[in-house]
Amino acid sequence: MPVNIVAFCCNWCSYAGADLAGTSRLAYPSQVKIIRVPCSCRVDEAFVLRAFIRGADGVIVCGCHLGDCHYMTGNHHTKQRMEALFGLLEFMGMERERLRLEWISASEGAKFADTMAGFTAQVEKLGKNERYAGKCFEAADAETTNTEATDTETADVEAMDVEATDAETADTETTNTKAAEDI
């Protein structure tokens, strides 16, 4: 089973770097899922933890080089925060190799592809994330799935549940609305 990598890329440098890698036809592993953030300092600890809960095997945070941040000091904060968070996760038994902080500028398409290939290989060596993945926030997941279900699926469910009373349907709707609010 291939490993899942989540890459948080800042809008101004790393995401543009990924774009350059694409336009330059540089291949990088397809299991890298890029999430664009306005600045790398937008990545808070809950993003990283949630990525692991939802099945990521490695998380890489990419930003502009120090001193090049579009918002002047954003990536200095990223550096301080992510080092603290990675240290704490390592302290709690997560392999440090699953976490990385990397600076990639908009002109470094090749570096982006290399970094992603290297990081994926590194995580593949460790295999799937067994320790820190699993059934966590189950209720939240169930609610999310509920909301994400398409209209057709909902209709199917209702058709199957012939005896569903109006009151029950109303209940489901309330849950859906609540789940939507949660998100």
Binding site: E45, I53, K135, C136, F137, E138, A139, A140, E143, D182
Partner: peptide, 18 residues
């Protein structure tokens, strides 16, 4: 609200990380 279910070890770890 979704966090107040019966606690499980993984959720507990991330709770304490945060």
């Amino acid at each position: 609200e979704s966090l107040t279910n019966p606690p499980n070890p993984l959720e507990n770890k991330f709770f304490h990380v945060i």
